[in-house]
């Protein structure tokens, strides 16, 4: 009984496979053409992949180099103010507007020292 059922099942499955295979063999020309186009599009994607990978590598490398350069520049700019004297515009105007001889400002530190010495002496 069970063997008979198994045989029937096998016959049924063979028939199903045969029918589905026939349906594939009898696909119309338009469908076959569209399937071929779909396959070619997918394969074109594969061909362009190594190109994309190569370029994405160089883009990554360029990005890394740019980021490194920015970091170094930032560090350099952060350190620079300690060695540079910055003057405000107001101080420049005061110097230009004064009636003192310009040499006075060149020797300003000397005059400050003389004044301190005189204060100490007194």
């Amino acid at each position: 009984m069970s063997q008979n059922n198994d045989n029937n099942e096998s016959v049924f499955l063979e028939r199903v496979r045969g029918t589905l295979d026939d349906s594939v063999d009898n696909l119309d020309a338009d469908t076959l053409s569209r399937l071929t186009q779909a396959r070619h599009r997918a394969l074109e994607e594969e061909k362009s992949r190594p190109y994309q990978r190569r370029h994405s590598f160089w883009f990554s490398l360029a990005g890394l180099a740019a980021a490194t350069a920015v970091i170094f520049l930032a560090i350099f700019l952060a350190r620079e103010p300690s060695g540079v004297q910055y003057y405000s515009g107001i101080e420049d105007v005061e110097i230009l507007a004064t009636s003192e001889n310009p040499e006075f400002f060149v020797d300003l530190e000397f005059y400050a020292w003389v004044a301190e010495e005189m204060d100490d002496a007194s």
């Binding site: 396959r39 599009r41 997918a42 994607e45 992949r49």
Partner: peptide, 14 residues
């Protein structure tokens, strides 16, 4: 069905 097959092909390749 054609759209689905194309999607599957592209997915496999990619």
């Amino acid at each position: 069905a054609l759209d689905i097959v194309q999607e599957a092909m592209l997915g496999l390749v990619k």
